[in-house]
């Protein structure tokens, strides 16, 4: 598999992108520093480094795994078993649709890049960079798939190790501008077709499409032996209609605006959000995915901890 052709690669490095890369790297290092718990444990049992347990010898077991000392002491044939460490490719799927470009950080130029703090896209980029940084430190392969968005250097970076690969991931995240519609129901199956059978998939999205349209695609993403983890980004202010006065609410993805007086609709909005979350969680349960809510204004370290913890 070859990497997708980078968009606008020929335009050279944008100083803003370089600055964002540095900022991403810095924030990733900070977050990883706060999360320094060991490596993934293999789900396979193999003859390698670390002792796991004994089992009674059965014909066909390698004789080299026989524990002679136990045989000498107890006259029993037992076989030593070990945990095996191996590479677990991780693919980061990041939603860069226009809706992800909103947040409480205030206004920024249309078509510009949202700040890394105070916007949903900023939180998504930082989270993806953190995971990538952490995996690079562990020497494990990590890949990136970007859904929607503009100015994306690489739509698809397959899981690989290495400093240059990690830099490409950070560069892609730093350069991308949220734009367009994610259309998860179509995009996720295409990405899933490229993923290794045994891997971890981290989907970072605001999931602002009807659950019925993407539930099946998400389930497909986590099918087989894949470990699917979904970071559900959201701006609490949007979910609670925490706005001072009535206004026209306009989606960056287009469509006609809606006039809302937040004071009167707040209670009903809470019911709507509860119903929506219930649908999302049901879809996650069906997909066997770990669902991690990530407020755009909250501490990302906690999100990283919940995202990467074992089990």
């Amino acid at each position: 598999m070859t990497p997708a052709r980078p968009e606008g690669h020929g335009a050279g490095w944008d100083p803003e992108v370089l600055a964002r890369i540095q900022a991403l790297a810095f924030q990733a290092r900070v977050l990883v520093a706060g999360f320094l718990h060991g490596a993934h444990r293999s789900t396979r049992v193999a003859h390698n480094v670390e002792f796991a347990d004994y089992k009674d010898y059965t014909p066909g077991d390698p004789l080299r795994d026989l524990d002679w000392r136990v045989l000498a002491r107890s006259d029993r044939l037992v076989v030593r078993r070990h945990h095996a460490e191996h590479e677990l490719p991780v693919t980061l799927v990041v939603d860069a649709s226009a809706d992800a470009g909103t947040g409480e950080a205030g206004r920024w130029p249309r078509g510009g890049r949202p700040p890394l703090t105070g916007s949903k896209w900023g939180a998504a980029a930082v989270l993806a960079a953190t995971v990538a940084w952490w995996l690079r430190r562990r020497g494990e392969p990590v890949g990136l798939a970007v859904v929607a968005g503009e100015s994306v250097p690489w739509r698809w970076l397959p899981p690989r190790t290495g400093r240059a690969h990690a830099a490409a991931i950070l560069g892609t995240l730093a350069a991308a501008v949220p734009a367009g519609r994610a259309d998860l129901g179509t995009a996720l199956p295409a990405i899933g077709a490229r993923l290794p059978r045994r891997s971890m998939v981290v989907l970072i999205s605001d999931l602002m499409e009807e659950p019925a349209t993407w539930a099946e695609a998400v389930a497909g993403l986590g099918a087989g032996l894949r470990d699917l983890r979904v970071v559900h980004l959201h701006d609490p202010r949007e979910w609670t209609l925490d706005y001072p006065a009535a206004a026209r609410f306009r989606s960056p993805e287009g469509g006609r605006p809606l006039v809302v007086d937040p004071a009167g609709a707040r209670d009903a909005m809470a019911e709507v959000v509860a119903d929506y979350l219930a649908e999302v969680r049901a879809a996650m349960v069906r997909a066997g995915a770990r669902h991690v809510l990530a407020p755009s204004d909250g501490a990302l370290s906690a999100v990283v901890a919940r995202l990467l913890r074992e089990g």
């Binding site: 909103t102 026209r248 306009r250 960056p252 009903a268 709507v272």
Partner: peptide, 25 residues
Amino acid sequence: QPPRRQVRYGAMLLLERLARRLRRR
């Protein structure tokens, strides 16, 4: 009079649902 102020809003899905709920009520 409808408000003039505009807000960029990234959870229109929820607002659409809210509109439907209020219409029922």
